[in-house]
């Protein structure tokens, strides 16, 4: 018996992503009564288009594990966490967390953080546009009230703190891919990602900077954010961090 029309789409959809790919009942063709090769075209389109999408979004993860392994990895991810909406810009957000737990990549412990960096870079790429404050505008800040100043941060701003030298790994792979110079045991890195204009800037920041930037973003004053950063790391250099942030176009407004 043919399935009810309302079951057709359900069984078609299920067979698109499952392991077996059995041709749903109710399909035919003039040449193949059970059109397996034809149904496989749809299955292939779904998998390949989504795997290609993941490869485009995570080029450094791909380079680190190799193309063939990456495509297999992406296939497992797609089955575990298929897209939930046609807004494919958002698809892949769960990939870093997936890599964190996926048993076959545990020998590359920094992989999830590299994926995080790539994802934050994409978020910054598509974030809202906003003109950063110029050095001239920043010079207008009343120096006596500098400590009371609260900043508005750029909508594209993202930060990442990793236990691994994630920025160095990412940079090396954007160039020649030589990781031998990187000291994997040499401690973590803090990274700031922002897109003040058309290009996404990625900056390695001094220690304790990420929390400092997040604190500023939460609306507390410069004085208080600095005090917290010094608590966390007595070597925190406000001057150095602040000038780096200004140079990157992180600030879009202030009040004091």
């Amino acid at each position: 018996m043919s399935p009810l029309p309302s079951d057709m789409e359900e069984s078609f959809a299920r067979s698109l992503l499952d392991q077996e790919g059995v041709v749903p009942d109710g399909l035919t063709s003039y040449s193949e009564p059970v059109p397996q090769t034809r149904f496989n075209i749809y299955r292939n389109n779904v998998h390949v288009s989504l795997i290609d999408m993941m490869a485009a979004k995570f080029p450094v993860v791909l380079k680190l594990v190799g193309e063939e392994f990456f495509r297999g990895l992406a296939r497992v991810y797609i089955r575990a966490e298929p897209p939930k909406s046609a807004l494919t810009l958002e698809y892949g957000a769960g990939f870093p967390g997936f890599l964190e737990d996926f048993e076959h990549v545990q020998d590359v412990p920094y992989l999830a953080d590299v994926a995080r960096l790539e994802w934050l870079r994409l978020e910054a790429y598509n974030a809202a546009d906003r003109e950063p404050l110029s050095p001239e505008e920043l010079a207008l800040i009343d120096h006596d009230r500098l400590g009371e100043t609260r900043f508005q941060l750029h909508p594209s701003l993202r930060t990442l703190r990793s236990d691994y030298p994630v920025m160095s790994i990412w940079e090396a792979n954007m160039q020649d891919g030589d990781l031998s110079e990187i000291d994997m045991a040499g401690g973590g890195e803090e990274v700031l990602i922002v897109r003040p204009g058309l290009d996404v800037e990625i900056l390695k920041m001094p220690s304790a900077s990420c929390d400092f930037v997040r604190d500023l973003g939460s609306g507390i004053s410069l004085h208080e954010a600095n005090a917290r950063a010094l608590d966390a790391n007595e070597g925190f250099d406000l001057q150095l961090v602040l000038s780096g942030l200004i140079r990157c176009g992180v600030f879009t407004g202030f009040s004091n």
């Binding site: 698109l16 779904v46 298929p82 897209p83 939930k84 046609a86 494919t88």
Partner: peptide, 22 residues
């Protein structure tokens, strides 16, 4: 064509039957 079923988006243009119901 259809491309979503339940809460999954398949990123492809999938076929439908042609009858009064569809």
């Amino acid at each position: 064509a259809w491309s979503s079923h339940d809460d999954v988006f398949y990123n492809d243009l999938l076929p439908l039957p042609y009858n009064e119901e569809t």
